[in-house]
Simulated assay, not measured.
Amino acid sequence: MDKLYLENIEIFAYHGVFQEEKTLGQKFIISLELTLDMREAAITGDLTKSVHYGELCHKIEEEFKKESYDLIETAVEKIAEYILFNYDMVKCAKVMLKKPWAPIGRHLDYAAVEIERAWHKCYISIGSNIGDKNRNIEESINRIRNIKEIRVSKVSTLIETAPWGIEDQDEFVNGAIEISTTLSPKELMRTLLKIEAEMKRERLLRWGPRIIDLDVVLYDDLISSDEEIILPHPRMEERIFVLEPLNEIAPYMLHPIKNKRVFELLSELKG
């Protein structure tokens, strides 16, 4: 993927923990590294197929001076968010913020922080077997759509499946969605759990009835053993109710541990 660089943009602003910093202001220096596909712009000469970096410089300055933050960590996070949420073609933004006049009582060239934020492709499995199941799933997807850090790009059709784990319960309706998100895996999982709680899901029995079930099954090609979110989702390859909707919207996605495509996992499970 191509890169666009903007180095050492000087902006006078009013960020800092101390009141003097907020009153008197000081100089900040911002550098950007943006990841995007610029091939079409290069071939056609069409600026709309790239990022207008002159415009971006002015927009960043406006955004940077809009509020006063105690921490430069917060200020740099806001810059990255602004770029990713307002420039659709930018897939990743690396932002460095230098503070050359940092009031520490010692000589230094600058204090600085650097962060990298990006859009990540993820797949979420959705299920319900209480009440109006289709409506529950539709509501959960709408709640996900309303989160600014998430963009829903694909939604599978819904299928009815037999319960898994505990058979003595109502049939499930299941589906899957593809999203892009700037949330980390843990942040995404916490967001989905919050939606489940808002929809009154009760965790009384493992594999028991549920009004809504939201699981992150794939997050890029990440492999994680974190207790809060295990990736890829454990046993997804054993569950038709996960693989069938996923196969509809992402048949060629690769399971990063099994090293097999979704359609291959489904075929083996059915075979």
Results as ranks from 00 to 15, higher is better:
V217D: 01
L204D: 15
E61I: 00
E138K: 13
F18W: 13
N247I: 03
S156N: 04
I9F: 10
V173F: 04
S140D: 14
S128I: 09
I147N: 04
L158Y: 11
Y252D: 15
Y252E: 15
Y5V: 01
S125R: 01
S224H: 01
L205P: 11
K270S: 02
G105T: 15
I249L: 06
W207T: 13
I211T: 14
E227P: 11
I249F: 10
T161F: 09
A75R: 03
L188P: 05
L24N: 06
E81I: 09
E196P: 06
T74W: 06
E77A: 14
N129C: 09
S50P: 06
K3R: 06
K49V: 02
P100R: 03
T35I: 09
W164S: 12
C92W: 06
S31I: 05
I179T: 02
V216Y: 03
V155Q: 03
I249T: 05
I166V: 15
T157D: 13
M253I: 09
I159M: 08
E7C: 11
K148Q: 12
K194H: 12
T48G: 03
T181F: 02
V152Y: 01
P256Y: 06
E167C: 07
L158V: 08
K22Q: 11
H107W: 10
M1G: 08
L71R: 13
T157V: 03
I166P: 11
L231N: 00
E228D: 14
F18P: 01
R201H: 14
I43N: 08
V76N: 04
L97T: 06
E10P: 02
I230H: 00
E160T: 15
E114G: 09
R135D: 10
V217P: 00
V90W: 03
H15M: 08
K99I: 03
A118Y: 08
T181L: 06
C92S: 15
K66M: 14
E196W: 09
L254G: 11
F241T: 12
A197E: 15
F64C: 00
K94T: 15
L266V: 11
S180Q: 06
H255D: 07
E238A: 14
L222P: 00
K260R: 14
L222E: 01
R117N: 07
H107I: 07
L108G: 07
C122Y: 03
S224Q: 04
